[in-house]
């Protein structure tokens, strides 16, 4: 539970850390918009190269970004495979015959069973999985035995490959950008920036301060609640709840035994917090001053100019080229 990387601040140095949170939020939005406007693979490659340069200058380790991407690996592979399998437009690039015979199906079933049985013990599950998929394809394509049921083909078309890479790169860019934002910005700063960026909404009578306060309290309490959940789990485990095992009915009971104390504690905590805030003269809706004021620097202006340039560049390429 403690390995949630998305949305976690990682202390560090580099120019991205010194940027104003407002700059980072606005730049993120501009860059994302730009990424959505790009519609050619080659331009997308240029865009990702730029992101790579930003990472390099910002001294953010690729490993961190990868950790942020990891929860999306499944989605990435899925979209990739989906495109390759079902998109049949453009030129045919590659064709592989597949023979569906009792022998090959049996062998592949064996591969699947081996995968199910051994995956527990393998550390690099993803690579292992890919090896198994490749092995299955290899079996289907090479063993041309007499008891043939039927024959198919594994084909890769040009558009499919382009589309697959394109979507993958776009997803990677978007997630990387948001990961950069959350890695380099403290939750409190992020919240300050958000409040500031949302200020124009005040004209349409949206209470931005309250929204910002709600977000900052929510962010503040995530680790506390995780900690609490952990303690509740231990307390229930010492009363014989085995969270690893159990049938469906027991599982439901286990979750109830976790959720009820969780809710009770959260309500109690919010009550206490409200009292504590009132005791320190917090009045909702009153204008408040800040201890740490956001300061706009030249670097921020440069970054915004770069982001606007990126957006207009991609619009220009889309429209003119």
């Amino acid at each position: 539970m403690k390995n949630i990387v998305i949305g976690r601040y990682v202390p560090g140095k580099g120019f991205l850390y010194t940027l104003d949170p407002r700059t980072k939020i606005i730049a993120l939005l501009l860059l994302m918009a730009g990424t959505f406007i790009i519609d050619e693979l080659i331009h997308m490659v240029v865009a990702i190269a730029m992101i790579g340069i930003i990472l390099l200058i910002g001294k953010i380790s690729i490993r961190r970004v990868y950790l942020g991407l990891r929860p999306l690996l499944f989605l990435l592979i899925f979209t990739f495979a989906f495109q390759i399998l079902f998109n049949t437009q453009g030129e045919l690039l590659y064709e592989m015959p597949l023979y569906y015979s009792p022998l090959t199906i049996g062998l592949v079933a064996l591969v699947v069973v081996t995968w199910m049985l051994t995956k527990k013990y393998i550390r690099f599950k993803l690579i292992y999985f890919l090896i198994m998929v490749a092995l299955s394809l290899f079996i289907f394509s090479t063993l041309n035995e007499p008891f043939v049921f039927g024959q198919g083909a594994f084909t890769v078309y040009e558009d499919a490959l382009q589309m697959a890479l394109f979507i993958m790169l776009r997803l990677i860019i978007i997630v990387t950008l948001s990961t950069i934002l959350t890695i380099t910005t403290k939750p409190t700063d992020l919240n300050l920036g958000l409040e500031s960026v949302l200020k124009p909404l005040k004209i349409v009578r949206v209470n931005t301060e309250e929204i910002a306060m709600i977000i900052s309290i929510a962010l503040r309490y995530i680790p506390t609640l995780l900690d609490e959940a952990n303690k509740i789990m231990l307390a229930q485990a010492s009363r014989g709840v085995d969270f690893q095992e159990g049938k469906l009915k027991e599982k439901v009971m286990q979750i109830v035994s976790l959720l009820v104390p969780m809710f009770i504690i959260s309500f109690k905590r919010s009550d206490e917090l409200a009292n504590a805030m009132e005791a320190r003269s917090f009045v909702p809706g009153q204008p408040r001053t800040r201890l740490h004021q956001l300061v706009w620097k030249t670097l921020d202006t440069l970054v915004i100019i770069f982001a606007i340039g990126f957006l207009f560049g991609s619009i220009y390429i889309r429209v003119m080229v």
């Binding site: 303690k231 509740i232 231990l234 485990a237 010492s238 009363r239 009820v260 104390p261």
Partner: peptide
């Protein structure tokens, strides 16, 4: 855990 019974400090963690 049946043989070693552990009572936690805060009862709120276990009553449900």
């Amino acid at each position: 855990r049946k043989q070693v019974g552990l009572v936690f400090q805060f009862p709120e963690y276990q009553l449900f």
